[in-house]
Amino acid sequence: MMATTSADIANLEAIATRCRAHILRMTHRAAAGHPGGSLSEIDILVALYFSRLNVDPDKPKLEERDRFILSKGHASPGMYAVLAEKGFITEEDLSSYRVLGGVCQGHVDMKWTPGIDFSAGSLGMGLSFGMGTAIAARLDGSERSTWVMIGDGEMQEGSIWEAAMAAAHHELGNLTVFVDKNNIQNDDFVEVQMRMFDIPAKWAGFGWAVRECDGHDMQQILDAIAWADSITDRPAVIIANTIKGKGISYMENNPAFHGAAPNDEQLGIGLAELGLFEVGA
């Protein structure tokens, strides 16, 4: 099931480009939301959902599905874009992002959106929940796996380290964490807000298998996923070096677009940069 040909890679990249456009349109329409972190995570989400995760859009609650937990639950536009591309929700559903009664709540919510495995939005919670689903899989004697995505700023939450310690103690080889290391948090650069020092050493010190990758290089992401699958005696963490706002020039590495939507003009520029044009724009 792992994509290896250049055609497969090109296909994944094309899906990611469409997802980037969804992210721009969703946040533009809502005039709110978190495009920066959605754009930094999106290549990893696409790689997981289109080459690795055993999930079925027609049976979103299938017991034997792999679990994916977006712990950085505010970066929901990226998640919704992938769910729409995968067929869990429709493209029309994407216009309900942040709208009263909408399928796409501001932060990802397991009670509102098919395909969402955990209601996140409050940082530092998803890894603990993922530890629970990983233990459940082990109790069931199941091969299903759990994948959790956290942000680098999110690692400032102490609860992440409670979970990291516990998951290693319990030798959860069926659990993998992706760190979307985009170096920016809400107020400013991570380096300014709270220096993280040696992130790989921190995880290794907590007993995890550690690997880094370029979070925008599809082949590197796929290789890292395969590596994580090969680690079965302890949890694995992939520190993905990413660029906040990746793919949209004025958003890239710009803290202003952590939690700000593009205006009309910016939407047009962004879609053009993706090689897409808004009808009527």
């Binding site: 495995d117 955990f118 629970g132 233990i135 109790l139 609860s159 409670e162 979970a163």
Partner: peptide, 24 residues
Amino acid sequence: RTVSCGIGEQNMMLVAAGLAASGY
């Protein structure tokens, strides 16, 4: 069927949530 969470209550509550979401 017993999970030691160490002295870590925040983690424990959500590990429990993950188990509950998996049918336990």
